[in-house]
């Protein structure tokens, strides 16, 4: 029965990811008595919010068989612009909306270059990465913008009902993202485009429009992540978010979303984000040299990919 075996394989694929996460957590609990404490768990979650929010957009992009290398640079440019507006006295809600708009706008440019000019996503977003980063440096003269209004800083440092605001924001983003992907027509169109862009066009789906949309989404979510970052640090650096695109891609890939597009989802990405965050946290707790940490993370990503391939 092909149905039965594919069902089992499907379960194994999801189950395997959560299982490895639990094994990792179990190992760290045994190795360090500081791991399984509420303070540490809140800490891990807070640290994973920025990568988590970016990885939501990245999941959508990779589901269309695309890639977005510009998320870190978009984060930086929208963050310094928001910080500058705030220091200039712009009302906090307006500054946030403008900042998100900058992120979405840069994503829109990505999307239009990819769909209308038919430039491969890797190349288009590589260009955007260097341009946005350069603009962020130019805009600030290379200096950080420090000292933001307290009401703005709430989104990075506030706590509601014992839960830090960034965790609430990231959780909400995941839920909205997952609902959009699985429960709406738009989500199915995006999966369809990733699955077979030719058939999607033949089926009357506006392929260009929805492909552009995922880059807009990725840009806006990068801007949101940037705001949480600068609110927490009370400072917007033009070099903020450097190489964040790779953390996000790593989380998506560990989470089982296929680079070929059309297969995967946000549940996997969430676990992927948490695996990477817990791993880094554990290595810190175990006093592993920070030079070795990327090596370990890299090995984990490679192993995760090999497992996904074996289970496919």
């Amino acid at each position: 029965m092909p149905a039965q075996s594919s069902k089992i394989r499907n379960l194994l694929r999801r189950f395997g990811l959560i299982l490895s996460f639990l094994l990792l957590a179990l190992a760290l609990t045994l190795l360090s008595d500081r791991f399984l404490t509420s303070a540490n768990i809140i800490n891990v979650l807070r640290q994973s919010t920025i990568n988590g929010i970016i990885a939501i957009g990245m999941t959508y992009v990779i589901l269309t068989a695309g890639i977005d290398l510009s998320v870190g640079a978009i984060l930086a440019l929208s963050a310094v612009m928001t910080a500058n507006l705030l220091q200039g006295g712009t009302a906090v809600p307006l500054a946030i909306i403008i900042g998100l708009g900058v992120g979405a706008g840069l994503g829109l440019i990505n999307g239009l270059i990819i769909t209308k000019a038919n430039v491969p996503p890797f190349v288009a977003t590589l260009g955007m990465m260097t341009i946005a980063r350069g603009l962020a440096l130019t805009y600030t003269g290379g200096r950080p913008i420090t000292g933001l209004p307290d009401s703005f800083r709430t989104i990075g440092t506030g706590v509601v009902g014992g839960v830090p605001v960034p965790i609430i924001l990231a959780g909400a983003a995941f839920i909205i993202g997952a609902v959009l992907l699985t429960k709406t027509a738009v989500g199915q169109y995006i999966l369809a485009i990733g699955n077979n862009p030719v058939a999607a066009r033949y089926a009357g789906i506006a392929v260009h429009r929805y492909t552009t949309f995922v880059y807009v989404l990725a840009g806006a979510l990068s801007a949101l992540a940037g705001m949480i970052l600068i609110a927490r640090l009370d400072s917007a650096q033009p070099t903020a978010g450097l190489a964040y695109e790779f953390d996000a891609i790593a989380a998506v890939v560990v989470g089982g979303t296929s680079f070929a597009g059309g297969q995967g989802g946000l549940g996997g990405t969430l676990v992927g984000v948490l695996i990477i965050a817990v791993l880094n946290n554990g290595l810190n707790l175990l006093n592993v040299s920070s030079f070795y940490q990327p090596v370990v993370t890299g090995v984990v990503i490679a192993v995760a990919l090999l497992l996904h391939r074996a289970l496919r």
Binding site: T184, Q188, L191, A192, N195, A199, A200, G204, I205
Partner: peptide
């Protein structure tokens, strides 16, 4: 066809408007 998608979505993709309210299926 969308080979990795379900029969349901393959049938529905061109006619989502028939079964969705405000975009929600």
């Amino acid at each position: 066809l969308f080979l990795h998608m379900a029969v349901r979505e393959n049938v529905l993709l061109s006619g989502m408007d028939l079964v969705a309210t405000l975009g929600f299926i």
